[in-house]
Nucleic acid binder design. Structure first.
Lengths: 188, 188
DNA sequence: GCTATTTCTTGATCTATATCAAAAGTACCG
DNA sequence: CGGTACTTTTGATATAGATCAAGAAATAGC
């Protein structure tokens, strides 16, 4: 069973033959360190499942780059704005390390629903779960001081601290790199 | 055409007979000012479309109450955590004014998909659009100072400033009521 | 309509976190 | 390897926004 099949199987009740249909359409693709999966203004026409490596999703704001998210093994990657509403993305998505994905194009993706009637439902559940993650992030940003946001990220995604430049993590949880550095020092 | 039919029709390509099926299942319900739509620990078993009035979604944190969202005419109201993943809600949802909704129970909701094959797709698109709203909120919280967050809310949802206590709006955009008061003064 | 209660404003402080600057550490590349 | 360029740390200072406290205004209840 591929990671993709495994992931879908572990989250949603899907029959083996449905799994096979899904994973037969996704093709293994890769991106070299530093390469861009997506740039602002483009219309994302891919849906990828992250197999290995780390990718940074960020958006420029003035002379800053705001890191929105770090994707790694187990996440789906796309821009819903593009795939579903045909709008250009505001994001850069850049590989921080060499990355591998299972990838489907937008056209294949559209045909997936024809071949697999439950696909919309699976996708709905997947997007719903990501929605609740975003709800929690908003709550955390509204309610937690910097120290608590740092602790929370450390608990939820400890592996990021070994693999990703700390300045990007600082941005992702809404603080300066200096503040993150001091928080790390104070809990050592 | 009811507000609900109108809303769905304006966002998604749905046939008239599909619309009729959808709106025949939703029943008009209401909630008095101060009443609770949902309290923490409950499992939300309703999906409502907001017809009139204002409702505050908030979550306690220490001795604070963090306002997560203000719902009004045109929003769907539920907790995805409950409806899709059967988990208890962390939220209070309380009517700030008398409210009316078009409401469907969870069981009817489950049967909707049987009667209307495209329902999962419609729902998926709806959740996807809410997801992008949350993405933008996270970006705004990460990248904007208080004054800019205030301006942004004022531009996007000006009606809230007449209908909703300002302290709740302040909480929703991550600042103290005093700060919001001063920002309002400075742009008058 | 009048009082009680809640909400909003204003001013005076305080503090968490940003910014700036430079040193120390680490990774990359010819 | 050894130098160049990033990244992280550390210290000094600045500042946005919080908190505290009190008065003014609005709203709700009788």
């Amino acid at each position: 069973m591929t990671e993709l099949e495994n992931y879908i199987h572990s989250y949603f009740k899907v029959f083996p033959d449905e799994l096979t249909v899904i994973s037969s359409l996704f093709k293994l693709t890769s991106l070299k360190k530093g390469g861009y999966f997506l740039k602002p203004g483009q219309i994302c026409d891919l849906l990828s499942f992250h197999k290995s490596g780390y990718m940074r999703v960020f958006q420029p704001k003035g002379d800053k780059k705001i890191t929105q998210w770090i994707s790694y093994k187990g996440f789906f990657i796309t821009d819903l704005r593009c795939i579903h509403f045909n709008q250009p993305t505001p994001y850069y998505m850049q590989a921080l390390t060499d990355c591998e994905f299972y990838t489907i194009t937008r056209d294949e993706y559209k045909s997936l629903a024809d071949r697999l009637p439950r696909w919309h439902e699976i996708e709905k559940l997947c997007i719903a779960s990501y929605f609740t993650v975003m709800e929690d992030r908003v709550f955390n940003l509204l309610s937690m001081p910097a120290a608590e946001r740092y602790q929370h990220l450390l608990n939820e995604h400890p592996e990021l601290f070994n693999q990703v430049p700390l300045q990007y993590l600082a941005s992702m949880i809404g603080m300066s790199p200096e503040t993150l550095s001091r928080l790390r020092k104070s809990t050592r």
